[in-house]
Design a protein around this nucleic acid. Structure first.
Lengths: 208, 208
DNA sequence: ATGATAATGGACAGCTTGTTCGGATTTTCG
DNA sequence: CGAAAATCCGAACAAGCTGTCCATTATCAT
């Protein structure tokens, strides 16, 4: 791999990435043909195949950057609050921040537009992040560990999708609050179920 | 729509549905061509287009049956336990039973194999079911109603996918128990977070 | 500037799609 | 049973996409 890339190559790749992003927002990934991409980017056919093996390759390479940056955000977040195992979803705020900054990219990945490949990819990334944050032991063995991971990742994706589609005006921290409320405390509190009326921990733990 | 269908037409459609199911289990939906389907079903090209406008049409028509049966299962479940608003996820057990019976169908719809169309379709079906079961008012206005719906649907799908991919031996009721544990009570109880150690309601409510 | 290197655009064969025929076959109904 | 009606079939089509090849052109290092 060439550490420094020819300027032409760099420009070509950038153009392709931009074209892909724009088209995915418009038509979704699956409906896209290589033809569409090179038309949008105004790039020759063979040029495309000189750089990537197909649209999936192009897509994946686009993830690389996001993936690394997200990992950094996680590190930063769980380093700040060393209480990683105390608040195992502590990095959720950082994640929503990151999503807000790259809203367009996330939008293409999540919900209908993304398609199978994209969905899988982001699931893997998030899964690993969650797995790291999760404490080594869970109370009781009733709920398998890998299920918990999947559950959280699913909740992330659901939240992101709802955010972008329904309430794009909400700030990352607002979304994070809603997410945590539901994922951490569960549905019982929200739903009828008066009996359990939960003597809630009075929510005055610390700052908010 | 012909109330009674010509036997030949019925056979053709059945063959196409079976072919689609088999191929989706093998290769997934997106990767499928009409060519593959008619080869597998041993049906002429023009015959296919005489019945359906394309593979998506065929797919959707396959849902019809499942959709109706699932609705019935829901009705039955929430009729038995009239406490619909008391235990708003009371039909979850019925849903997992249904999924177990039509495991092959569900398997094609969920997780990688399904593709975008399928995923959307099942999301819609489940969303409506959940929306009906949800009580008219939620405690506090912190969490928007439609978000709760999406959250539950997402949890369903996550659970189904995990079940099929990782622990296909589990019984519907076992899966349901795990699901309810996480969705209703939330993560706090499972995860470190010793402080909140929840004075749990002693779980001796009534029958189980 | 000049040769070496790499990106580029256009053209190619192979495949899938969706449509349109006429003819063969099966079903339905009298 | 027998005829009319409906359905299936196979072939052939234009159009579109895919992935590869090669000659041309632009950039890089010296």
């Amino acid at each position: 791999m060439p550490r420094e890339m020819d300027r032409r190559a760099a420009r070509t790749r950038k153009a392709l990435h931009q074209a892909l992003l724009a088209l995915m927002l418009r038509k979704g990934y699956e409906a896209l043909s290589v033809q569409d991409i090179i038309d949008e980017a105004d790039i020759g056919r063979s040029t495309f195949y000189a750089h990537y093996t197909g649209k999936e390759d192009l897509l994946r390479s686009g993830f690389q950057m996001l993936r690394e940056e997200l990992k950094e955000a996680q590190s930063a977040a769980s380093a700040g609050a060393e209480a990683s195992h105390d608040d195992p979803l502590g990095f959720s705020a950082a994640m929503f921040e990151h999503a807000a900054r790259y809203a367009d990219h996330y939008r293409t990945m999540i919900g209908g537009r993304g398609g199978t490949v994209t969905e899988n990819e982001i699931r893997l990334i998030l899964s690993e992040m969650v797995r790291q944050e999760l404490p080594p032991t869970l109370h009781g063995d009733a709920v398998p560990r890998d299920f918990v991971v999947q559950f959280i990742v699913g909740a992330f994706l659901t939240t992101l999708n709802w955010w972008f589609e329904r309430k794009p005006k909400l700030s990352p921290s607002q979304v994070d609050a809603i997410f945590r409320r539901l994922a951490l405390e569960g549905l019982s509190q929200l739903i009828g179920d008066e009996r359990r009326q939960v003597d809630r921990p009075d929510a005055s733990r610390d700052t908010a």
